[in-house]
Write a protein that binds this DNA or RNA. Structure first.
Lengths: 254, 254
DNA sequence: TTAACAGGTCAACGCTGTTGACATAAGGTG
DNA sequence: CACCTTATGTCAACAGCGTTGACCTGTTAA
């Protein structure tokens, strides 16, 4: 609240729908939609205030009546993406399958708008759609039988891992053409040709590396996380209650 | 290789060490070091060609004699970070403890230079230090007894998880002051105050959320990944050889 | 001694986000 | 219906950005 700039009129107070010179009636929703379209069609570099103004048929500076600055706009875009993802997800009651499905949806949803994802996935928006997502995931975990501290811990790992991989994979999709091709070339030209005497392990697995590195590691990582969570749940429910909270399964200190 | 611009003289061919107007003798190493210092001291926004030139005591355009463009410089910075991390890591022979240690080192190494990490962690540099890291990690996994395809799969999940979380956490550290404080405020002001009747799960776990969300989920996620890997290894070694390759443990298709 | 050229400098380009001043149309009030 | 307030669109300007082509100069090899 403290940071809500004076320049921006909160959506509730907006009444005067004055059309722009070109006849377009602006709104926060229209601006967000147009920004997403711009990102999708022309890449991350295409999202500039000036181009967005042009695409909207309005003076660039008009945007500042709706968003404090470009960061504020970014958060609105991020929240819209969360909302779209959640809207296509329909839980079945099987916590593990549901979380797996949701994770994959969050991931692929980001890849559909990589330019937006890479810019926004690490932000806490605090807006409606994000709050809904938090509530829903926590509900799934608590419903599965995880005690509160455990539920929160797994929620955090699950959601941050999804966001982190989304950003990572989105980033490489969003790379400028030249850089992306350069990266593919590096694997072929560098890693595939390392001699066995200096790099035995890479040489021995080169074939598998080529195949595996070209796709995202997220599904594998997600399954591993869920496997560990399931094991933990079994531990908890078998031992009656959670009298032994600490156990991380590993020997090493946490 | 094809993309190595004509303007940039490869390091090997450099001979003429002409000092700048201010008496500084430039080199690729000096530039990378100075860039890291700039990032550390003044944040990501401080890393501009002009400021870097100023910090070096040289004309900004002199940098283009050493790096094709700012992206090229970025990759050099990334590789230097990888090298520094690997140099402080000393494996013991216990694969799980070693990977855990390495993961945490990569993570905290990134957080020491969040500005650099957020810019570079999703890039394949193909430079010396990166190659060394790949070789080492693969060696640990194969040495532990994972068959090649499994070793590659786990390597990929492990390394991308580390990079993804590094980028995620680095990004929030690297946020401009104002935005960072705003995010902290969102948790306190928004999530902590949601009423139990509309958001029962958040309300019930608010206390744990406040505590857990302020620190990184990476250690927890890393432990879960290693737990799943250990379980898989046991499966493999107990059943003699890996006649049942496919099994993802989960029921859903991959 | 000289010729070649790597490498530092300078000025300029087009682009960016942002802001303050200004113009105008919408809408509540009387 | 007329007025006044003010939300909102427009315009011009600012400083800063990455990048480049032309220029100049010191170093080095022959």
């Amino acid at each position: 609240m403290t940071s809500t700039n004076d320049r921006v009129v909160p959506p509730a107070a907006r009444r005067r729908r004055r059309p722009t010179k070109k006849g377009v009636v602006l709104s926060a929703e229209l601006i967000v939609e147009t920004a997403l379209r711009l990102l999708k069609e022309h890449g991350a570099d295409a999202l500039t205030v000036r181009r967005l103004g042009l695409a909207l048929g309005a003076d660039p500076s008009a945007l500042y009546r709706y968003f404090r600055d470009t960061d504020d706009l970014l958060l609105a875009i991020a929240d819209e993406l969360i909302g779209r993802t959640l809207r296509t997800w329909h839980p079945t009651g099987d916590w593990r399958a549901d979380l797996r499905d949701l994770g994959l949806r969050m991931h692929s949803g980001s890849l559909a708008h990589p330019q937006a994802a890479v810019l926004s996935s690490y932000r806490v928006t605090g807006r409606v759609h994000e709050i809904g997502a938090v509530e829903t995931i926590l509900g799934v975990l608590r419903g599965a039988g995880f005690p509160d501290p455990e539920a929160v811990r797994i929620y955090h790992a699950f959601v941050d891992q999804a966001l982190a991989f989304a950003a990572l994979d989105a980033a490489s999709i969003a790379l400028p053409r030249a850089a992306r091709e350069a990266e593919a070339g590096v694997w072929r030209a560098t890693y595939a040709r390392l001699p066995a005497d200096t790099h035995p392990h890479i040489a021995a697995t080169a074939r598998h590396l080529m195949a595996d590195m070209r796709r995202s590691a997220y599904p594998a990582a997600l399954d591993m996380l869920l496997t560990a969570a399931a094991a933990r749940l079994e531990e908890i429910t078998q031992h009656g209650n959670a009298e032994t909270l600490p156990g991380r399964t590993s020997g090493t200190s946490h």
